[in-house]
Amino acid sequence: MSITLADARVVTPAGVHDGWITIEDGRVTHIGRGHAPHGDGHGLAGRYVVPGFVDIHTHGGAGGSFPSGDPDEARRIAAFHAAHGTTTIMASLVTASLADIARATAALADLCDDGLLAGIHFEGPYIARSRCGAHDPALLREPSPGELADLLKAGRGHVRMLTIAPELPGGLDTIRAAASDGVIAALGHSDATYDQAIAGIEAGCTVATHLFNALPSLHHREPGPVAALLEDERVTVELINDGLHVHPAMLRLAARAAGTGRAVLITDAMAAAGMGDGAYRLGSMEVEVSGGAARLVEGGSIAGSTLTMDVAFRRTVREAGLPVADAAVMASLTPARVLGIDDRVGSIAVGKDADLVVLDDDLTVHRVMKRGAWVTSP
């Protein structure tokens, strides 16, 4: 089956052009400029077409939570975020007992086998107590390569990322072990100094978990991990652009310092995404959502977000002032590169999966396509 999307503003890493896209058997086969050579009723009236979003840090949505390990919840979460343009999603867990992490990992690995999820992310338990945020401090552990190896076995090769504080005893050895097993080591929830962060990077950390959040602030005499992460060309930095976690000026600063090739948009969404205010849970922690902001009932720490990637994308353009093409790279291509799947997804290119998001002039979602099939109703 062939579909041609005509009269579109096609967004590629090189920029935006008026043109058309032909899709056959779930893949992009032709990209053109100007008028399409033939019409098949899929005129987009000048709307933007951007690549499907790739979210490498998501805990839940639509009332469901990945840490529960419930397959039905996981499917509901993926469907909810797909309707908001996220056609590739990685499931993020939170700090829990080793048994609970292994159980959830094994269950989610089945959905990775099915292609629903792009992998599993361990956010904890190897994080700093002083920067644990919405993670249960009673369940934090010192990093251990042996423990990590046991957890990775439960994932059957689908654990793709580990957030870790490199300054903890055993931290550097565990980072090296993760990297040697093909797991992305992400520096986060850490009280590392500048030098300790550099040591973590040298050991193998290549991602910064939600830069600025749960990390010491930049200071001109004590630059801390943020400076080390921004200045090292090997590190990709995550940014939660919901208007609560990061000020637009800081997002611009990070995007300029790292470049769109090293800055990625994430949601860090939890179960309340797509739901109303009220009481929720993130792992073992009780969360209250008010005005769309999720915070722990005890202590008031920010507990993930209620963000979706379409909103993050729109805010990056409208609030932070970045070009549409740059926002698309941050929301799609760069995170796809992090996961090593940019040969299939992340940009609109011949031969890649037809994962596409059609946006109205105000950058709200009009329709979503995944592998050539419409996710939202025509």
Score class of each variant (00 low, 15 high):
Gly204Tyr: 12
Asp113Phe: 09
Ala293His: 04
Cys112Gln: 07
Arg33His: 15
Gln196Arg: 08
Glu167Thr: 04
Arg252His: 05
Ala82Ser: 14
Ala14Arg: 13
Phe66Ala: 01
Gly39Pro: 06
Gly69Asp: 00
Ala106Gly: 09
Gly171His: 12
Glu123Phe: 04
Ala109Val: 07
Gly243Ser: 07
Leu187Asn: 07
Ser130Tyr: 04
Thr193Met: 09
His220Ser: 06
Gly34Ser: 11
Asp72Tyr: 15
Ile23Ala: 02
Leu162Lys: 01
Ser180Leu: 11
Gly278His: 10
Pro248His: 11
Leu108Asn: 02
Leu307His: 05
His57Ala: 11
Val375Ile: 14
Met270Cys: 06
Ala138Tyr: 00
Ala109Trp: 12
Ala255Asp: 07
His84Val: 04
Ala107Asp: 03
Gly146Gln: 15
Ala203Gly: 06
Val16Leu: 13
Leu339Cys: 03
Ser190Thr: 14
Pro137Ala: 01
Ile77Arg: 00
Thr86Asn: 15
Leu282Thr: 04
Gly155Ile: 03
Cys132Thr: 09
Val50Met: 08
Ala96Lys: 00
Ala185Cys: 15
Thr306Val: 07
Pro67Met: 06
Ile164Trp: 00
Leu117Pro: 12
Asp100Cys: 00
Ala312Gln: 05
Met250Pro: 12
Ala177Gly: 06
Ala271Gln: 01
Ser190Asn: 03
His158Phe: 15
Glu167Arg: 09
Thr86Leu: 13
Thr193Trp: 00
Leu98Phe: 13
Glu142His: 15
Ala99Gly: 12
Ala165Asp: 01
Gly299Ser: 04
Ala107Arg: 10
Arg252Tyr: 07
Ile302Gln: 10
Gly157Lys: 06
Asp114Pro: 10
Leu187Phe: 08
Ser2Gly: 12
His189Trp: 10
Val246Ala: 05
Thr58Phe: 00
His366Met: 02
Leu151Ser: 14
Leu282Gln: 10
Gly224Glu: 03
Thr334Asp: 03
Ser377Pro: 12
Ala197Trp: 01
